[in-house]
Amino acid sequence: MSSNNLTSLGRRRKVAARPHLPKRRFGRVAAVASLIFLGALMLVGPTGVRAWSESARMLDQREKELADLQAERDRIANRVELLDPANADPDLVGELLRSNLNVAHQDEVVLSRDD
């Protein structure tokens, strides 16, 4: 092969490679655009960093609410146990009678309290 043939082949390769360049460029642009889109979703998407911090805040709020409800449940369970008909606590029964039925013994004095 002569040097003219190599030069002409080299030119042909360069010329032949140029029509594929826009397709290659489009692929790169599409890849970069999709990476930017996925990065934005990672930050502000439904499972992104912002949603994660919101979920953590809601979890803390729900745990506090759960602790309050468990304390209320324990208080009510204790009161039910104290009011068991087989073994009722006399102090609690007397307190409930006085507060709900407005009854008192003859020797008791009732003092009204301004709230």
Rank of each mutant, 00 (worst) to 15 (best):
M1A: 12
S2R: 07
S3A: 08
T7W: 12
S8P: 06
L9Q: 13
L9H: 12
L9G: 10
G10S: 09
G10F: 11
G10T: 06
R11D: 09
R13Q: 10
K14E: 08
K14P: 00
V15K: 13
V15A: 11
A16S: 13
A16K: 12
A17Y: 05
A17D: 03
R18M: 15
P19K: 06
P19E: 04
H20N: 11
K23G: 11
R24Y: 04
R25D: 06
R25K: 15
R25A: 09
G27V: 03
G27W: 00
R28P: 01
R28Q: 07
R28T: 08
R28Y: 03
A30I: 05
A31E: 04
A31R: 07
A31Y: 07
V32T: 05
S34W: 12
S34T: 10
L35I: 10
F37Q: 15
G39F: 02
A40L: 13
L41G: 11
L41I: 14
M42K: 14
L43G: 06
L43W: 12
V44H: 02
V44Y: 03
V44Q: 02
V44S: 03
G45T: 01
P46K: 12
T47F: 13
T47W: 12
T47R: 13
T47N: 14
G48R: 02
G48V: 02
V49R: 09
V49A: 11
R50T: 14
R50P: 07
R50V: 15
A51M: 08
A51N: 05
A51I: 06
W52I: 04
W52R: 09
S53C: 12
S53G: 12
S53P: 01
E54P: 01
S55W: 06
R57G: 13
M58H: 09
M58E: 11
L59T: 15
D60S: 11
D60I: 08
R62V: 14
R62E: 07
E63N: 09
E63K: 13
E63G: 02
E63I: 04
L66V: 04
L66Y: 07
A67K: 05
A67H: 03
D68T: 02
D68L: 08
L69F: 09
Q70C: 04
A71H: 03
E72N: 10
E72P: 02
E72K: 13
D74I: 07
D74H: 05
R75E: 06
I76Y: 06
A77N: 05
A77P: 01
R79M: 10
D84F: 04
N87F: 11
A88R: 13
A88K: 15
D89V: 01
D89E: 01
P90R: 01
P90D: 02
D91E: 14
D91K: 10
V93Q: 00
V93G: 00
L96H: 01
L97G: 00
R98E: 02
R98T: 03
S99E: 05
S99L: 08
N100M: 10
N100C: 11
N100A: 08
N100G: 07
L101W: 04
N102G: 09
V103C: 00
A104P: 00
H105F: 05
Q106M: 09
Q106G: 11
D107T: 07
E108N: 02
V110K: 14
V110T: 13
L111M: 15
S112I: 15
S112G: 14
S112W: 15
S112K: 15
D114S: 15
D114C: 14
D115V: 13
D115I: 11
